[in-house]
Every structure is written in structure tokens, then in C-alpha cells.
Computed example of a mutant assay.
Amino acid sequence: MSTLKPEVSSSDHIEGSDAASITIVEFGDYQCPHCAHAYPIIKEIEQAFGDQIRFVFRHFPLQESHEFAFPAALAAEAAAMQGKFWEMHDALFENQYRLSDDLFEELAETIGLDVEQFQKAILEDAVKQKVEDDFESGVRSGVNGTPSFYVNETKFDGGPDELFEMLKESAE
């Protein structure tokens, strides 16, 4: 069985309570249609389980097949520099159908970022490094496609619908 490497830490983007009994890590790609399908289901899981769930997103841009995956991940990380990772994360998935180089700036403005700061941040080595570290973590954890989910550090074989079902069953 594949396990998550490295484990969740303060360098991750985390939504939810540290006291949650279930940690879900998603390795995702902002241009991947399957990740876009998973996005509202993850939101639903978070609503259904509230404080029981801690959700972590790690970047796994599939650059060969998705030309905007890496720049989108950089945009999310640049937004994180201004404390708005999740806002950008949501905006990227909600606007996936129109991903382009021009979109990132527009979304930065929409979510209330300082656009000039955002443009500088997107070019910073630290931002690129974070995306590469996430990707490397996915490779080490045995990710073979997106989205890939890890539940309490163990790879979950199945998509977001199966994940939701499994969580519902274990909650009963």
C-alpha cells in the first residue's frame, strides 16, 4: 500500500480542524477534468463532515498533457503569499474551462489580491519550489494520476464519489 510521503506539515495548505479524525490529501492538477469533477464533491464532503475532516491540497501538475497546470499551480502559490490560497484554488477550478495566461491576473484581481505583488510572487523561486516539492511528494507517495487521494496517509483507491461513499459508511 502506498503511504503519503512526507506527512502533512505546516508547509501544506490545510482546510479544517487540526483535531479532525480524518485527513484527506488530494494530489491535484488545476487543468485536469477529473480534478474539476472532484472539486464540488470535496466541498460536499467538507460540508457533510465538518470538523471531522481536514483537507490538504498538494500540486501534481501533469505538464505533458496540461499546458496551464503548472502556471495555475504557481498562481495558487502566489496567492498563498497573500494568504489567499484557497480563494485562488476555488477560482481556478470554477474557471477551469477558460484557463489561460490572462486568467490568472483576472482571478487575482477578483479575489482581492494586490496584483502587482501577485505578478512578482508568481516568478519567485520559492513559489516554483513549493509546486515542485508537492509534485516530488506525489512521486514518492506513488501518485500515478490526478486526482489521487490519501486518507490518513494511506492511498485511497478510487475517485471522489467512492471516497464520499466510504466516509459515509464509516460514519454510520
Rank of each mutant, 00 (worst) to 15 (best):
H59F: 09
A20G: 07
V56P: 00
F49E: 00
E26G: 02
E87I: 01
L74N: 12
Y97W: 14
A75N: 09
M88N: 10
L99A: 10
A80Y: 00
T23Q: 01
E169N: 10
H34K: 15
Q129L: 10
A73Q: 10
D125A: 11
I42W: 01
A36I: 09
K84G: 02
N95P: 14
C32G: 03
Q82P: 07
F156R: 10
K43L: 11
R98Q: 15
G83Y: 14
F27T: 00
C35A: 09
D29G: 09
E116D: 13
K168E: 05
G142C: 04
Q31G: 07
L4Y: 02
S100M: 03
D18K: 00
K43Y: 15
F118T: 00
E136H: 15
I41P: 05
I14R: 07
D51R: 11
A48I: 06
K84V: 07
E165F: 01
D114N: 12
E46M: 14
F85T: 14
R98M: 13
A121L: 08
A48H: 10
N95W: 01
I22P: 05
H34L: 10
E165A: 05
I53F: 12
R98W: 06
Q129D: 13
E116W: 02
E165R: 05
G138C: 04
I41N: 04
E87S: 12
N144I: 08
E162M: 05
L4T: 02
A171V: 09
D161V: 08
H13R: 11
F85L: 12
D125L: 06
A73P: 14
A38D: 03
S148R: 05
E15K: 11
G16L: 04
G28M: 11
F55D: 08
H37F: 14
L123C: 07
M166D: 06
S21D: 03
M81A: 14
Y97E: 14
I14H: 06
Q96G: 06
E106G: 03
E94C: 11
L103H: 13
E132R: 11
C35H: 03
D51L: 03
K130P: 06
A79G: 12
S65V: 04
L107Q: 03
F70Q: 06
E87V: 00
A19Q: 10
E105N: 15
E132F: 15
I111R: 02
I22K: 06
T110K: 14
E132K: 08
N144Q: 12
M1F: 15
H66S: 04
E153D: 03
A171C: 05
R140A: 13
P71N: 14
S9V: 01
M1R: 01
Y97C: 07
D18P: 07
G158A: 08
E94F: 00
D133E: 13
L167R: 11
G158C: 08
R140I: 05
S17P: 07
Q63V: 15
I122C: 01
I45K: 04
H59T: 07
V151W: 00
G142A: 05
G83T: 09
G159Q: 11
E106P: 13
I24V: 05
E64F: 12
H89W: 02
E77F: 00
I122P: 00
P147W: 03
V131I: 14
A48R: 09
